[in-house]
Structure formats: C-alpha cells, structure tokens
Design a protein around this nucleic acid. Structure first.
Lengths: 190, 190
DNA sequence: GAAAATAGTTGAACAAGTTCAACTTGATGA
DNA sequence: TCATCAAGTTGAACTTGTTCAACTATTTTC
C-alpha cells in the first residue's frame, strides 16, 4: 500500500480515474534513503522526481560566500524536484539531503517523459501542481519583503509545526534567510 | 498580425502545429488599456489571463501597513495572470495597473477552460510555462536572501534594461523590497 | 563511554536598511 | 502658464540583522 499516499495526493490536485492512478503509480519505484545521504548534489544532473512517503528532506544551495540557503523542506506527502535541472538536463544548483531515514517514490526522467505521453492527464496534474507551487512562492517572497525575521519565524513554526519540530535552528535560519545567531536571539525575545 | 507575437511566444515553450496555434489564438481578444488604468484590483476576482503586446504593466499588492509590494512587471511578450484568483475564483490579493498605454490579448475564464478541453496541448503549454516561472521565482527568493539591495538593484537594471527604463525608482524599489529613499542612496554610491 | 564534532547562546561592534522630515526637481493638468 | 502633485534627494536618528569570538550544551562516532 505505499501508493495510497501518492494516489490521495494526486486526487487532491485533479479528478482522475482509478485506472490512470494505477498506471501512474506503476511508474514510481520505492527507495530508502538513509539520514544525511544526498539524493542530489550541486553540479550533477537531476534524473529523478520524487514523492516523499516517510521522513524529511532539505533542498538547499550553497552560494559563493559558502552560505547555505534552504529553498524548502519536503516531509511526508510532499514532492521533491529540481525542475530546472530535470527539464533542461543542466547541472543542478541544488542539494537534496535526507534529514532522517526516509522512504521515497522515484520516477526517472525517461519514464516521466513516457508517462506524459501515455497518460495525458499527467500534464494537467503537473500543470495544476506547478501553478499552486507558483502561488506559494509568490506569497513567500512577499512575506520576505514585508515581514520581519521574527514574524517569518513564527509564521513558519505555526504553519508547519510537524516539519519545524524535526529541524535544527540552523536549518530553520537558512530557510528564513537569516543567521542562526540571530534566530537564537529572536527565540529568546518571544 | 497581432497574434504573431503570441504564436512565437508559445513556440518558445512547446512544439506545436500551426493549426493548434491558430485555434489557441482565436480564443484571445485584443484590448487597449490606458495608462494608469487597472486590469484588476485587490478584492475582485480575476476573470482573464493576458498576454502583453505593447506597453507595460505592474502587478502589486498592498499590505496591512499600506506598503506597495511589486510582484513583477509585464512588458511586451510577457504573460499576466493571477493564478490563485483565476483557478480558485477567490478574491484577488493583487492589483494590475498599466504603466503606459498598452495593448493586450485577453482570454476569459470560460474560454480558457474550454481551450484546455479542445486543445489538449494547452495543458502542456501552461505546465511548461508554470515550471519555468517557478524556477525564476525560486532564484529570485535566493537572490533576496544572499544578495544586498545594491546587488539586487544592479542585477535587475542590467537583466531587464528595457523594463527598468520605463519605471520610476519608487516602482523599482517596491519590486526590490526596499524603500525608495534607500534606493536613492544606493544609486548615489555607485 | 570518552572524544570529537556539531548545534545553540550570548555579547560587543558593526553594516544594512528604515523612518521621518525637509527640501528640490520634474511632470501634469485646468 | 501657473499651480499642484508626485518623484527623487539628503541627513540624522533609529531598528534590524550580521559578524566574530568565546562559551555551553548536545549529538555522533569510534
């Protein structure tokens, strides 16, 4: 039954037949990733797309100054992808690391392209998912512009309590775009 | 020939037949928008998607403190949409204003939904467009985290010189997420 | 179970960016 | 063409967040 979670997730995005759901599921293969192992490292080409069944991942870049910058965390029921690298087959700017022992469903690039062909509704699925993600990213940027670090921290901690509880303050700080020293001071204040 | 630009734009995203291009184009209607007029205001529901043929638009929100926050500018050859409001038929958080007299192709919501049905490749078109946009938003957030306002200003001014030249400093500042006073000081330094 | 590495705390000095207010310049419109 | 209104400039005081360094607490690892 590892595919139940995937199927439910898909149904949250589009209306789809059981048959199509089964076909889509059959393309995804379960994998176990150990804590601290990398699914992707900066410079390599991302050849998979993933759906998290258990555990938690962190997606981040390292800039010129050596600072880690977390794009997002992916826990159970979240998707993992480096769209840029996957679409264009260019070296990735991202690192994807398991924060704990994790279980994930993966589809490789050739199979994904085949899936778009054989199950046309998959285009719609990823269109809808991408558009929802786009809205979320727009909102996050706005929050970055008009809220202080303290406000952003509390938003994150209350919106994603189950993810936040798995993370170190250093990881949270790299997601908020502040230093971990400053996060420590924020937490002391409140 | 107002549809040539639209067709070229679509061809940059996907491979598509002339027939499909013509069908898609037929759903879009040209409109003129006068300088300072609004295509959308916060609180109303967005019923159109647009493609800019001439002129320039600004997409922004106004937060609780009354500060304007610019999400993006859309000049010739750019798309204009409030995905959130359009998809879910919820009141929009965005304002879309013409910065100069502009010409735009619009498709209304019912026609857009019909278009997805009648020309299936439109799903792929918007899937690809959304994924590209997503990558751009992710990069912008990272830049906001690891670059100073000065670096972000120069990145914007050199990456989009033709858009930047149409804008007031106040509008640029609201895009960068800084005050216009500080932008003035940045420009003086360099 | 000891040693080593990593995470978190705190303080002082600093840099980046804001706020407010006063002023100058430029655009716009009756 | 004069008056008005919005855009841009500048300075001083202030707030937010950074840097670096020294320290403590907590995990990891052998």
């Amino acid at each position: 039954m590892p595919y139940d979670l995937l199927k439910l997730n898909i149904q949250k995005n589009i209306q789809i037949s059981e048959k199509d759901l089964d076909t889509i599921s059959s393309y995804f293969k379960p994998h176990l990733i150990k804590k601290k192992d990398f699914l992707l490292t900066q410079g390599s080409i991302y050849k998979f797309e993933g759906f998290v069944l258990e555990g938690c991942f962190r997606v981040f870049t390292i800039d010129k100054k050596g600072n880690e910058n977390t794009l997002y965390f992916a826990a159970k029921d979240w998707w993992l992808m480096d769209i840029d690298s996957f679409m264009n087959q260019t070296p990735s700017n991202l690192n994807i690391q398991a924060l704990e022992d994790s279980k994930i469903l993966l589809i490789n690039r050739a199979d994904k392209l085949a899936l778009y062909e054989s199950v046309p509704i998959v285009e719609k699925l990823f269109r809808v998912m991408s558009q929802k993600a786009l809205v979320a990213w727009q909102r996050r940027l706005i929050r970055n512009h008009c809220e202080t670090a303290k406000e952003r921290y509390h938003y994150f901690a209350t919106t994603y309590p189950n993810i936040a509880s798995k993370l170190t303050d250093k990881q949270i700080a790299s997601y908020l775009g502040i230093t971990h020293e400053f996060l420590s001071k924020i937490k002391k204040q409140s």
